[in-house]
Every structure is written in structure tokens, then in C-alpha cells.
């Protein structure tokens, strides 16, 4: 794969033959932001708030949003290497890395591999590891469980916060469907975790904040605490009145926690 040589200030980003759509916002030290089940909407209120504290680079993963997915890009291994190449294109010596949910899994993998290049790591309701025994699923099965239950577990106040499909445009629904397919491709089996990742988390060099929605029913705060314990020196914090999407559900509280951590 040919790495991008320098990160352009706007527009899409080419990583070899992968064309990534990128949402950018703010000024300061670069922060690579890796999204969860859905790509980041440019009008999400948390972006402007967070932009006061970091220069955000939020690509859509290959196959999500309007990012391309060459046919042979189909595993988390591919995504991790895609983002390692993207990191190479950022001229700054230090970069912050933040991952939401599925993107938190990617961020943890990247933090292990990128070593000291990652200055700060923020994992938000992250997936990626297996904690409990074989009969206890740590990560709620969003594919095989009833969508009403998935919705209830994903949002602190589903009626107010969950997307209303009847109110979305055709292109928004097509985007959700494309994201859903890509997520399944990358995360079906083993379901949303890498059995080997847990043993390597102890090698993460970045200062780490593990941030969790207190009502998250997709991955519970207990899972988040266990995750944090595996990363040397990691702090674990929760955000009230938020579930799996604290950056959307409580954007002000979310950005306050992140900015405080970035300054600490």
C-alpha cells in the first residue's frame, strides 16, 4: 500500500487505493477520531465544541459513509493498517487518538502498534476485547437481537435521541444501510473483538482515558472498567444520562471530560 505523503487540509484522503471521506474541525494538536457503528455527521454538535481543543480528523472507515472499500479490504486488520498509514501522513510528532464503540476497538489496536506516536488515547464505549466467560456475551449482539432491544440499550432516552427512520431522507437511510453492511463485514466473527488484543493492551504507551455512557447497554460500564484496568495508568470515567453515544447524547459533558483530559 502506498502511504499518503502529507495530509491535505480539506477534501477526501487517499490511502493507497482507499478514498476516505474525512470530517475536519478545529485547531490545535491533531486528533484522529474513529467512529462507531455510524460515520460522524458533519453537523454533530460535539464537533464544534471539541474543535476548540484539538484539530479533529474524522474519516469514515472504508465501506462506511462515502468512503470507498476496495474489495479486498474486509477485516479489522485492514482498517488498522489503513489508519497506521493515515497517521504517517500527519506531520505532527504527537497525535491524539479517540475511538467510539467499534472505532474504539480500532483505536486500541492502533495504540498498541503505534507506540509513543500516540500521545493521548480516548476510548469511548469501546468494543474489541473479551472479558467474561464463554456464556456471557460482553458485547450486545446488535445483529441477532430485536431492533427494539438494540435501540433501548443504545440510547439513554431512545424516544428523544434514537434516529427516527421515518424522518430520515432516502440518502441517510442508504448510508445507514451501507454502514450496517460494513460493520457486519468487519465485526461478525469473532463478534466485535479480537481474542488476542487483551494480552497486548499492557503495551499501550499513551496516556489513556476510558470514557463510558453510564447507561450503555451495548457494552456496560463494568466492561469499560475492565478495559481500563488492562491499560497501564488508564483513567475510567462515566457520563450520566448517556448510553452508547455519549458524544451525541451529552455533547457538552462529553467535550468537558475530553478537553480536561487533553489538558491534564
Amino acid at each position: 500500500m502506498t502511504n499518503a505523503t502529507a495530509l491535505p487540509a480539506s477534501g477526501n484522503l487517499l490511502i493507497g487505493d482507499i478514498e476516505l471521506e474525512v470530517v475536519r474541525r478545529g485547531v490545535g494538536q491533531p486528533m484522529l477520531l474513529l467512529h462507531g457503528f455510524q460515520n460522524i455527521e458533519p453537523d454533530a454538535p460535539f464537533l464544534d465544541m471539541l474543535g476548540d481543543h484539538a484539530s479533529i480528523i474524522a474519516p469514515s472507515h472504508p465501506g462506511f459513509g462515502r468512503s470507498s472499500r476496495p474489495k479486498d479490504v474486509e477485516t479489522v486488520y485492514d482498517l488498522v493498517h489503513c489508519y497506521l498509514a493515515l497517521l504517517d501522513s500527519i506531520p505532527d510528532e504527537k497525535v491524539s487518538l479517540m475511538g467510539f464503540s467499534f472505532g474504539g476497538w480500532l483505536a486500541a489496536e492502533i495504540a498498541v502498534k503505534a507506540g509513543r506516536r500516540i500521545d493521548r488515547l480516548i476510548l469511548v464505549d469501546a468494543l474489541g476485547i473479551k472479558i467474561s466467560g464463554p456464556e456471557t456475551p460482553d458485547i450486545f449482539d446488535v445483529f441477532n437481537k430485536h431492533p427494539d432491544e438494540v435501540r433501548k440499550r443504545s440510547w439513554h432516552d431512545p424516544a428523544a435521541q434514537a434516529p427516527d427512520y421515518d424522518a430520515l431522507s432516502d440518502s441517510q437511510l442508504a448510508n445507514i444501510s451501507r454502514n450496517w453492511e460494513a460493520l457486519c463485514r468487519y465485526g461478525w466473527h469473532p463478534y466485535m473483538y479480537n481474542p488476542q488484543l487483551k494480552r497486548w493492551l499492557g503495551h499501550i504507551k499513551a496516556r489513556t482515558l476510558v470514557l463510558w455512557g453510564a447507561s450503555d447497554g451495548i457494552v456496560t460500564p463494568a466492561y469499560g472498567e475492565a478495559y481500563a484496568r488492562l491499560i497501564p495508568g488508564a483513567r475510567f470515567e462515566t457520563i450520566d444520562a448517556a448510553a452508547h453515544h455519549p458524544y451525541l447524547e451529552q455533547p457538552r459533558a462529553f467535550v468537558d471530560r475530553v478537553s480536561r483530559f487533553l489538558k491534564s
Partner: peptide
């Protein structure tokens, strides 16, 4: 994906 509107709504 283009079939999504019919399926989701």
C-alpha cells in the same frame, strides 16, 4: 443500500 428506504420505513 438504495433499497434501504423501503426496508427501513
Amino acid at each position: 443500500p438504495q433499497a434501504a428506504p423501503g426496508l427501513y420505513r
